[in-house]
């Protein structure tokens, strides 16, 4: 079993074997997270920088928890407290940090492509924690983990991704990864929230008719309506959006009996889904997704920092 990636930036470069390995190791880390002492010494002495240049609650906190449970030293960095507000370029900041002999950088940025640049400037492994509208690979991995945990396999599942497809970096990682793993993907949303060329997403079907698509889906993946990115008024009102594309108690009747609901968070209750569906005991996987976030991030750190002699079997 070999793992030959230096960075986790573009999930479409990962094969089905690579993704399966990450999910398998994440599964092993579940046991560590359920102990009384939720910590192992594996990455003792490694220093990881969490560079979050855009607000984040769950991604940032779950990376930090994952790092601490593997005994990494962490440096949290970003926002208005850094030298970038004094005019230093991002890449100069990265080079400065690298002088401290750090081992890995986790990057979140509002501009697509920043993780690539950080990877080139730093020379250390980089994990993309979300860049602009481009990718969010660890989110996709935790989604895949959640789906596999619930259904046993991802191959053959029909996953519908609903909502703000055009602004979504979750889609950028999740759709290619689902296709790699053999799932069928339908993207659903108003045409005004689709990218200009939806066929480039790689999904099998593109539709604006939620009610027609819903009965076929095993996984109903609701995206957040990103109010902060809606300057162009793509739909008349949040209420109208909720009526056409919200997952509601009424609409649940159209779902398969064992279909599940996923959401990357944070939730806009009453917009993309109502309280009943968000808190549904059988269908809602939303909090399991959050837990899976720690597990797949531990697995990603473990594999990317794993020694120099990749692929040795012990």
């Amino acid at each position: 079993m070999a793992f030959n990636h230096r960075h986790l930036i573009d999930l479409s470069e990962y094969s089905a074997e690579d993704i399966t390995l990450i999910l398998d190791i994440a599964e092993r880390f579940r046991e560590v997270n359920e102990r009384r002492i939720k910590k192992v010494p594996t990455l003792k002495g490694y220093t990881v920088v969490n560079m979050f240049n855009e607000p984040s609650t769950r991604t940032r906190s779950s990376f930090e928890i994952a790092e601490k449970r593997l005994s990494c030293d962490t440096l949290n960095f970003g926002g208005s407290s850094t030298s970038t507000v004094k005019g230093e370029s991002l890449l100069d900041t990265v080079r400065t940090l690298c002088s401290y002999k750090i081992d890995l950088i986790v990057v979140r940025d509002k501009h697509a492509g920043v993780p690539y640049q950080v990877a080139q400037a730093s020379g250390v492994p980089v994990i993309d924690a979300g860049d602009g509208k481009h990718q969010h690979p660890t989110q996709a991995l935790l989604d895949l983990y959640t789906m596999r945990k619930r259904f046993g396999a991802i191959e053959g599942l029909h996953v519908g991704i609903v909502g703000d497809i055009g602004h979504s970096r979750v889609c950028g990682s999740l759709i290619p990864a689902l296709k790699t793993m053999g799932a069928e993907v339908t993207v659903i949303g108003p045409p005004t929230l689709m990218p200009a060329m939806p066929e480039l997403l790689g999904a099998d079907h593109v539709t604006s008719d939620f009610d027609a698509a819903l009965p076929q889906l095993d996984v109903v993946y609701m995206l957040r309506i990103q109010r902060e990115r809606l300057e162009g008024a793509p739909f008349p009102s949040l209420r109208e959006y909720n009526l056409l594309f919200g997952l509601t108690r009424e609409r649940e009747k159209l779902m398969k009996p064992d279909a599940i609901v996923c959401h990357p968070g944070p939730l806009n209750r009453g917009v993309e889904l109502d309280d009943y569906m968000a808190d549904h005991l059988e269908r809602s996987e939303i909090l399991d997704q959050v837990y899976a976030g720690v597990l797949v991030r531990m697995a990603s750190l473990y594999l990317l920092l794993g020694g120099t002699d990749h692929g040795v079997d012990a």
């Binding site: 092993r28 560590v32 594996t42 120099t308 002699d309 990749h310």
Partner: peptide, 22 residues
């Protein structure tokens, strides 16, 4: 007991295999 998370040679002798402790 799986000891792969406790090895002292992680940096030089890495195996991606992690077994389960039960």
């Amino acid at each position: 007991l799986d000891i792969s998370l406790y090895r002292d040679d992680f940096a030089t002798y890495f195996s991606p295999e992690v077994h389960s402790t039960q």
